[in-house]
Design a protein around this nucleic acid. Structure first.
Length: 1095
RNA sequence: GGGCGAUUAGCUCAGUUGGUUAGAGCGCAACGUUGACAUCGUUGAGGUCACAGGUUCGAGUCCUGUAUCGCCCACCA
């Protein structure tokens, strides 16, 4: 007997036991099996920049939930894990730390050493992230875990780059980029944030010159917030319709600082008549708008900056100075020269780099781009054709809007951490011809033939063995920048020898840049499955597979059926079987950055979308409505919450929050380490940073002691008592788990002497049929809701079923039947005795429902359900189950055969048949096909019983009747209802401590009784001596008043001719019914008042 | 400026295609622990559904406008 089941669920113990159990048995492993459908989720890659927070916990919970559901439904459910190298973010973290701790920059230690350090960092955090995910219960196929910089992903990156290069989709160009002068790299628009900053707005003048470059005495005034860029001005611009300057257009002005002459141009898009003086200086190399105007008007572009933000030789005498110094000098010089007009204070929106927090400089530099035109069109069509569907649908807008712009994708980053661009750039001079030097080098690489320039391409291909395009080893294009041509040579992946040759011949001419991290993330769905390798599946983590082999791990499909896992001999089975994936579950901020690009590359590389569904879930906010982020210091480590509420409690709460309309606020508290009191988090807590070496503390209002707390801004001192972040919201899930635990504990404690066997429908009494009907309904609802990714509703439906129906009603109702055996000796009730049959039937139904509940809850709360499943398995390894289609594990019995013969109608006789329970909940079959158990009219009858009991309880509370005292109750109702109520008379005693003394149509109200009125019954509880007559009169009068209000509303409706005429007849009939009911209730209340008043 | 959302009980959120008396959890109040569970049970109080118009027999739900908040995109000499 399971006498050892503790009264409280212990999450830590269950988590420690069952995760290794699942792993050991290989239940997470997904291998191609042509007899079963695949279900594939590609994990949105966490960055290796740091630990995970609640956003990841949400994201992970939902993916694991779906994965476990599909696994139970019989799919080969692959959840592909991995991590992202997150180029700039990771390099910045490591560089910052290196600078803080050792005072070193990357230039001090060099490319290789820095990359080595980042790898070390990556290993540490990847481990930490994986640990967090496993703590949460993530049932990923960990053998397949990938990293975006590993060999398999690299190959996909190289292949894609090469093909795009070959197809002319990748080009090199000068572009104005957001330059981070601290990190010395270009950053993407989305890595830049804007902040209103206190700045100044200066007005200066440029003198206008005549044809002979002599001053005319005319001047043109303009305003700027960045005077230092005057050195790079190549025009001043006015609006074409601005008459003030009409006669100046076409003339030239002199920049007083360096004497350079620049034209006055007109451009309606750049200049605004009503802003400032109406005239604007144009610095194409250092301002996005000016850049666009520069292109439109074919203006020269003068780059003033060095990569580190200091001014270069184009700044003349100002060269070598920092931005701020140049600005001051320029202003002073302009003033000295007499061209300064005025200055005013102004709030200026300044762009900052998200990574380094330093100001962004618009900067003209050489970058690589992907042409988006046709690629974007195809990705747009995929969504418009519904090859990819968004849940909720509205998010398709973000995706489409962004792609419609078709802005070319800048894929180069001036970093050291990432996929190096596989292109060698060889300068060849003023015309696109093969120079002797290049020819000589190529000769040495390929042989001694010489080439004619236009034939170079073909010849090179021929050199590689007359190869088709597919086998091209490298590709050349020619590129012109400022009149200088260079050969861009891209090497195909897998050309080791050629690459070595290039390194030998061309030395460090390989482009130093690396690819945008999204370039590799975009390939995630293909790369992880081994694309472009078509002859073998991608390798797996040997440390896991080796251990599994020695443990004798079976495949998931070994349960009950032999594995037919495809051998990789004849192709890439993983790619064939698992691509395209099923659903991507992610947050909305990367719909454009990631989702769109995955679709785009999937279509480009494989001709098919990478997934059919995209579920976009909510964002978790802190208690103040802010996104959780590391920088805000409001992130919560899921491990803190798991420690306090259990992984299942966390998961269940998260699932209950995951609706489709709103983001969710999560007010945070700190748990006092001294007394376990809670301290509400304030914005100050989030922001507080150590001052003078003193770390900020929180003070507990309960015990008045203070302590250090979990903060993004400092590491707590080891050994110091620490207030960890908690959120009371998660008590919802923890409490539910405990409730489930105790309900199952109760069931198991009452399974003494359990014997499996068939339960015929005729043996089931009202509450059995009711709970099975409810189970069938809820099973359908949950399945349907999860198919639509409506996790919150599914969670609520299950919670309500388990807590408010199974626990509150069913378990209470069956207690007498379970005790029926009390007279017999334990476990050996005399066969054939009536008491034994009642109890046995009850036990069998109970086990059936518990079994189904565990299966339904497993995707939500895997640990506790597995734990209970295993315990139940010890007590009832063979037990009746519902909603199981396979008959393989069915226990055949004479009884069943007999029943099957008698019930010729339908394939599934309504009976509970015993099965051998599957050895683990994680692979138990998801309940389905319970349609036949649904009995809506029975549910309605049961509802009446519930209403009546609640009404009696209500009166007891109202009159403060001692819980120990039994009250009488008389019910006046129609005959057929009376029959129902008589059947459950015993339940009144049990659930309301009430004795049903009379029931029927002719029941009169006993004297001095409290009463209640339901839609189809009136109840009376004689309370001789307890009742306060005046109070009861007042109560009933109040009730009557309320009813009169409702009645008036309904009567008004019905007296409205257009309502009766135009509303659907069933609605009108419903209102009539309701009105009749209300009138009956009112009559009853009035009657009570009359009687009481009369005495 | 463009787009997408949101505004319902003290707090956090549900509310299907418009249709009886708008729900849940937490919190609050009262009562209750002799065998599942105090991480519990029973009962209760608590809402002019942001505001103003409109459509409709009927609006929390649909339309228009306003206010406030959030996010995305663009722009800001």
């Amino acid at each position: 007997m399971p006498t050892d089941i503790p009264k409280q669920y212990d999450p830590q113990a269950a988590e420690a036991q069952w995760f290794p159990f699942w792993e050991r048995h290989g239940y997470f492993n997904a291998d191609p099996d042509p007899r079963r459908p695949p279900h594939v989720i590609m994990m949105p890659l966490p960055n290796v920049t740091g630990a995970l927070h609640m956003g990841h916990a949400l994201n992970g919970t939902l993916q694991d939930l779906v994965t476990r559901l599909r696994r139970m439904q019989g799919c080969v459910a692959l959840w592909m894990p991995g991590t992202d190298h997150a180029g700039i973010a990771t390099q910045a973290v490591v560089e910052r730390r290196m600078l803080e701790q050792e005072g070193l920059t990357r230039h001090d230690i060099g490319r290789e050493a820095l990359v080595a350090r980042i790898w070390k960092w990556k290993d540490e955090y990847e481990q930490r992230i994986r640990n967090q995910q496993k703590q949460l219960g993530a049932s990923c196929d960990w053998r397949r875990a990938r990293f975006t910089l590993d060999d398999v992903c690299s190959k996909a990156v190289r292949r894609t780059f090469f093909q795009m290069f070959r197809d002319g989709l990748i080009y090199r160009g000068k572009r104005l980029v957001n330059w981070d002068t601290f990190l010395q790299t270009a950053v993407a628009d989305d890595e830049v944030y804007t902040e209103e900053t206190a700045g100044k707005f200066w007005t200066f003048r440029y003198p206008v010159v005549d044809e002979d470059d002599q001053l005319t005495g005319h001047e043109i005034a303009f305003s700027t917030t960045r005077p230092e860029t005057m050195l790079g001005d190549t025009a001043v611009c006015v609006h074409p319709g601005d008459e003030r300057y009409a006669d100046l257009v076409g003339r030239q002005v002199r920049i007083p600082l360096n004497g350079r002459l620049i034209p006055i141009i007109k451009d309606g898009q750049l200049a605004d008549k009503d802003l400032g003086t109406g005239c604007v200086k144009v610095t194409p190399a250092h301002d996005p708008n000016d850049y666009a105007a520069g292109l439109r008007n074919k203006l020269p572009m003068i780059n003033l900056l060095n990569p580190d933000g200091t001014f270069n030789e184009n700044a003349g005498v100002y060269a070598g100075l920092a931005r701020e110094a140049v600005r001051d000098a320029v202003i002073a010089d302009m003033e000295r020269l007499g061209y300064f007009d005025s200055v005013e204070d102004r709030q200026i929106p300044m762009k900052f780099s998200d990574r380094s927090k330093t100001p962004i400089e618009p900067y003209l530099s050489d970058q690589w781009f992907v042409k988006m035109d046709t690629l974007a069109t195809k990705a747009i069509d995929a969504v418009k054709n519904r090859d990819v569907e968004f849940f909720p649908e509205r998010y398709a807008n973000s995706y489409l809007d962004w792609l419609e712009e078709k802005r070319d994708w800048c894929i180069s980053r001036q970093l050291w951490w990432g996929h190096r661009i596989p292109v060698w750039i060889f300068p060849i001079g003023p015309s696109p011809e093969l120079t002797d030097e290049l020819e000589a080098k190529i000769d040495r690489l390929f042989g001694s033939d010489s080439f004619i320039m236009p034939e170079l391409q073909k010849a090179l291909a021929a050199r590689m063995g007359g190869a088709s395009d597919e086998k091209l080893a490298f590709q050349v294009t020619f590129n012109e920048v400022d009149g200088e041509w260079s050969a861009l040579m891209c090497i195909a992946p897998g050309q080791q020898k050629l690459e070595e040759g290039f390194k030998r011949e061309f030395g460090d001419l390989q482009d130093p840049d690396v690819l945008d991290t999204w370039f590799s993330s975009a390939l995630w769905p293909q790369a992880t499955l081994g694309w472009p390798d078509c002859d073998h599946s991608p390798p797996m983590d040997e440390s896991i597979t080796a251990r599994s082999a020695s443990d004798g791990v079976r495949n998931l499909s070994d349960e009950g059926t032999p594995s037919l896992a495809l051998r990789a001999a004849n192709g890439n089975a993983a790619l064939d079987y698992f691509y395209p994936g099923s659903v991507l579950i992610t947050s909305r901020d990367i719909i454009t950055l990631w989702v769109a690009r995955m679709v785009l590359t999937g279509l480009y590389n494989l001709g098919d979308v990478p997934f059919r569904h995209v579920h976009v879930h909510l964002t978790i906010l802190d208690g103040f409505g802010q996104r959780m982020s590391k920088t805000k210091g409001n992130g919560v480590d899921p491990l803190d919450l798991i420690a306090r509420y259990g992984a299942d409690g966390l998961r269940f709460t998260i699932a209950s929050l995951a609706g489709e309309t709103q983001d969710v606020r999560l007010p945070i508290s700190y748990a006092c380490p001294h007394c376990d009191g809670l301290i509400a988090q304030t914005l100050d807590h989030q922001k507080a940073k150590p001052k003078n070496g003193k770390k900020p503390r929180v003070k507990c209002p309960k015990c008045k002691q203070d302590s250090q707390y979990t903060s993004a801004n400092y590491d707590a001192d080891p050994g110091e008592p620490l207030a960890t972040m908690v959120s009371e919201r998660f008590e919802y899930g923890r409490n539910f788990c405990n409730k489930l635990w105790n309900a199952c504990r109760f069931a198991m404690l009452n399974l003494e002497g359990f014997s499996p066997g068939l339960v015929a429908k005729a043996d089931l009494i009202l509450e059995d049929r009711w709970i099975l009907s409810r189970l069938a309904t809820v099973t359908d609802d949950v399945t349907r809701l999860l198919d639509k990714y409506q996790f919150d509703q599914a969670t609520r439906a299950l919670r309500e079923f388990v807590w408010n129906e199974f626990c509150d009603w069913y378990l209470e109702l069956i207690k007498p039947r379970l005790r029926a055996e009390a007279t017999g000796s334990p476990g050996v009730a005399p066969p054939g005795s009536e008491t034994s049959d009642i109890r046995t039937t009850c036990q069998r139904v109970l086990v059936t429902v518990v079994d189904a509940i565990l299966r339904l809850l497993h995707p939500f709360t895997p640990f506790i359900t597995e734990d209970l499943w295993q315990r139940l398995g010890e007590i009832a390894p063979v037990r009746p189950m519902v909603g199981v289609e396979s008959r393989e594990s069915r226990v055949e019995s004479q009884q069943e055969t007999a029943l099957a013969e008698t019930s010729s109608s339908g394939p599934q006789p309504l009976a509970l048949s015993p099965y051998h329970a599957v050895s683990a909940c994680i692979i138990a079959p998801w309940p389905q096909g319970l349609e036949a158990w649904k009995q809506p009219e029975l549910e309605a009858r049961f509802q009446r019983l519930q209403d009546t009991i609640v009404a009696v309880r209500n009166l007891r509370g109202l009159y403060n009747i001692s819980p120990a005292a039994t009250v009488d109750v008389a019910l006046q109702c129609r005959t057929e209802i009376a029959d129902d109520l008589r059947q459950v008379a015993a339940q009144f005693e049990l659930l309301a401590k009430a004795k049903l003394i009379a029931v029927g149509p002719d029941i009169a109200r006993p004297k001095m009784s409290a009463s209640f009125s339901l839609t189809d019954a009136d109840g009376y509880v004689p309370l001789e001596g307890l009742i306060d007559r005046d109070a009861e009169i007042i109560r009933q009068q109040k009730e009557a008043e309320k009813l009169r209000g409702f009645i008036a509303g309904h009567e008004k409706k019905l007296s409205n001719a257009s309502f009766v005429d135009r509303a659907p007849p069933e609605v009108v009939a419903e209102v009539r019914d309701t009105l009749a009911n209300l009138q009956k209730q009112l009559a009853s209340a009035e009657d009570v008042v009359r009687q009481l008043t009369a005495g």
